[in-house]
């Protein structure tokens, strides 16, 4: 469970986040949407402890994030746009490194660590690439590796910033399933921000719409309608319902 209280962030006199309060319950996936520059990424980075807030606190199961980065790694896993710098690393070995926060210094990885890595290699369909260097992977597969890395860390809070970048339709399906499976497993939560509104409506349990560093709207995914999209994104859309899930789907008007 994450409890965010009065979170504010001011950088060079510019208000980036303005008094945000939010509670995320165990097993919940929160989708965050909003125009570019609305503060989504900075919100996620502040919650993940990568940026120090100007005011307010973030509590994970009632406690602040510990100062030890190693311990913090078992509590929060953030996946943003960062790219690993060593292209010669093999895919499997790279994914195993995600378990470093769970093992003692100088100890080898446990069977469980290897089992978790194997599990997500299967989930993200990475088996055929496991012996390749990460520098030799196509962009879409490489993105899957980064997402698998974030999930393999096994932290209580999974924070994904624009995870749909570079993903094809197969990878999107894998990611959706992986997030659902992740939060079902124990006391875990997921915060996902994406510019792909359809992915968010199909994945999240609850939606947050951000505008000018504030939470402008919050509710279930059913709150998505043409008026809301027009109000916060400034474009006209048609909303239909997915015939299997009943969740809203957004369609653009053709240019006239």
């Amino acid at each position: 469970m994450i409890d965010i209280k009065n979170l504010s962030l001011v950088i060079n006199n510019a208000v980036i986040l303005d008094d945000i309060s939010l509670t995320v319950n165990d097993g919940e996936t929160i989708g965050i949407i909003g125009k570019s520059g609305s503060g989504k990424t900075m919100f996620l980075k502040t919650v993940a402890g990568l940026v120090a807030p100007s005011d307010g606190i973030v509590l994970f199961n009632g406690a602040r994030l510990p100062k030890s980065a190693r311990t913090a790694g078992t509590i929060v896993s953030y996946c943003g746009g960062a790219v690993p710098h060593n292209p010669d690393e093999g895919l499997y070995n790279f994914l195993l490194l995600a378990r470093m926060s769970h093992k003692k210094a100088l100890r080898p990885f446990s069977d469980f660590d290897r089992q978790v890595a194997e599990e997500y290699i299967q989930v993200f369909g990475l088996g055929p690439f496991r012996d390749r260097s990460i520098g030799l992977l196509p962009d879409g597969i490489f993105r899957r590796v980064l997402l698998a890395y974030a999930l393999i860390r096994g932290a209580g809070a999974l924070i994904l910033d624009n995870p749909t970048n570079d993903l094809d339709i197969v990878s999107l399906k894998m990611l959706k399933k992986a997030i659902a499976r992740y939060v079902m497993n124990g006391k875990r939560v997921a915060l996902v921000c994406a510019n792909d509104l359809n992915f968010i409506t199909q994945t999240a349990d609850r939606l947050i719409v951000m505008e000018d560093g504030r939470i402008a709207e919050t509710g279930t995914v059913d709150m998505i309608n043409a008026d809301l999209v027009k109000q916060y994104f400034g474009i006209d859309v048609i909303i239909s319902r997915n015939i299997y899930t009943g969740k809203p789907e957004i369609h653009f008007f053709p240019d006239t």
Partner: peptide, 19 residues
């Protein structure tokens, strides 16, 4: 002995489980 830690180091701060 410190191979795993050093390999994490080689990927940059976002992938390093430490301060």
């Amino acid at each position: 002995l410190a191979g795993n830690k050093l390999r994490m180091y080689s990927h940059g701060i976002p992938f390093f489980a430490g301060s």
